[in-house]
Design a binder for these strands. Structure first.
Lengths: 94, 94
DNA sequence: CCCTTTATTCGATTAACATCGAACTAATAG
DNA sequence: CTATTAGTTCGATGTTAATCGAATAAAGGG
């Protein structure tokens, strides 16, 4: 018995989104319509680089974002497929 | 500047949903197609009544559920309007 | 009136999370 | 090679969250 795997997956996605800074990161990503770097978000949200790196990792692990690496720089973008599947219509509300 | 109010509201809804037991409660509510009580969920999920009462309160405060009281018993149901507005299509995935 | 049932609140505990700065790694530019 | 830039990891800290049992309150039944 206990909790189904499906519930854990959904709850995990929600848990990652349950943080205002991450919502804000998504909004910036969505409206800027371009990729963003860790340092860029760090400066814009006034958070330390380590904290932003932590958020980036959480979102990537939940499948919410893509990461494209060029040299030592990592560019973050929204994984629209996952949003379309699990939270259709959400991105447009940002 | 800091975080927008909108982000806090959205993040709060997500935070409440970021708990497997609450997803499970919603699934039971959705499929049973009837109201549920605290004791009933407590027995079904093998959680203490106080814990379930805590979850019920969190979901109600986030506007995700309705509560109908008859004597000392409180009947929980899904607030479909809120789901339709913020997470259209989510309930049908349960 | 007691006893049972239903739910809430309280205090405590444990676990998880967000955050920072410092140390570290990797890549690039002089 | 050294200095800089980008990001990660680590250790620490304070906060919040989930959970329980016990105590409490409120309603109903015998």
């Amino acid at each position: 018995m206990g909790i189904e795997q499906k519930d854990k997956t959904m709850a995990n996605i929600f848990k990652v989104l349950g943080e205002p800074h991450r919502i804000e990161i998504l909004r910036i990503l969505y409206h800027a319509r371009r990729e963003l770097t860790c340092s860029e978000v760090s400066a814009q949200l006034n958070l330390s680089k380590s904290t932003v790196s932590y958020h980036f990792r959480a979102m990537r692990l939940a499948g919410l974002t893509h990461t494209r690496q060029v040299a030592q720089t990592k560019y973050l973008s929204i994984n629209e497929t996952v949003f379309e599947r699990f939270l259709p219509g959400f991105l447009t509300t940002l």
